[in-house]
Amino acid sequence: MIFESKYPLPEVPETDVFNYIFHHGRRPYPCSRVLYCVDRTGETLTLAQLEEKSRRFADAIRSEYGIMPKDVVGILAQDKSKS
């Protein structure tokens, strides 16, 4: 089934996903803002931590698999709690 939004489509960004999420497309949140909190453990993730983890992930897939900027990548992952 195809669903159509009643809202207009947003403009396509003229930047890569990382820069759009962390620099161009986000509201001016402080880096210490908590974005994610695990109910059972109280574990949190701040904007600064998410950016750092994203950079480390990018470095790892670049060195491990030779993936470079502008390469198209799809990632399918199972929820950590269900593995």
Rank of each mutant, 00 (worst) to 15 (best):
H24R: 04
P8F: 02
A77C: 05
K70Y: 11
G42V: 13
S5H: 06
A60K: 06
E43D: 15
T15P: 01
Q78R: 11
I75C: 04
A58K: 03
I75D: 01
E4Q: 08
R62H: 13
E64F: 03
E4R: 04
P28G: 04
H24P: 00
V38M: 04
V12H: 08
I21G: 00
L47M: 12
V17E: 02
R26I: 15
V34C: 08
A60L: 12
S5I: 08
E51S: 08
A48F: 14
R56W: 05
V73M: 05
P13K: 00
G74I: 13
G66I: 07
D59M: 04
S32A: 15
A48S: 15
M1F: 03
K6V: 09
A77Y: 06
Y7C: 11
A48G: 14
L47V: 15
R40H: 10
A60M: 10
H23P: 01
I67T: 04
K80L: 10
Y20W: 13
L76Q: 08
E4Y: 00
D71R: 01
V38P: 00
V17P: 01
S5Y: 03
A48K: 14
S5N: 12
T15N: 02
A58M: 12
V72N: 04
V12E: 10
P8H: 06
M68E: 13
Y29G: 04
P13Y: 00
H24W: 02
L45K: 12
V73D: 00
E52Y: 13
R26F: 09
K82M: 11
Y36C: 08
A58C: 15
K80T: 14
Q78S: 02
M1A: 13
V72R: 05
C37H: 07
G74C: 09
A60P: 07
P69T: 09
M68A: 10
E4N: 07
P69N: 00
Y7V: 14
G66Y: 00
H23C: 11
D39A: 12
Y36P: 03
P30G: 10
H24M: 05
E14N: 10
H23V: 15
Y7S: 14
G25C: 03
T41P: 05
I61H: 01
S63M: 06
Y20G: 02
T44D: 05
L50D: 09
C37T: 15
E14Y: 08
F3A: 14
L47E: 09
V12T: 15
P10T: 02
K82W: 08
I21H: 01
S54F: 07
V38S: 02
Q78A: 07
V17A: 07
D59H: 05
Y29M: 13
A48Q: 15
T15G: 02
R26H: 05
P10H: 06
I21L: 12
L45R: 11
V73Y: 01
E52R: 15
C37E: 09
R55H: 12
L9K: 10
R27Q: 13
E11A: 08
I21F: 12
N19I: 14
S5F: 06
R33W: 06
R55E: 13
R26P: 03
R40L: 13
V34T: 14
G66R: 00
R55K: 11
D16E: 07
M68G: 10
Y20Q: 08
H23T: 15
Q78I: 08
A77W: 02
G25E: 03
G66N: 03
Q78P: 01
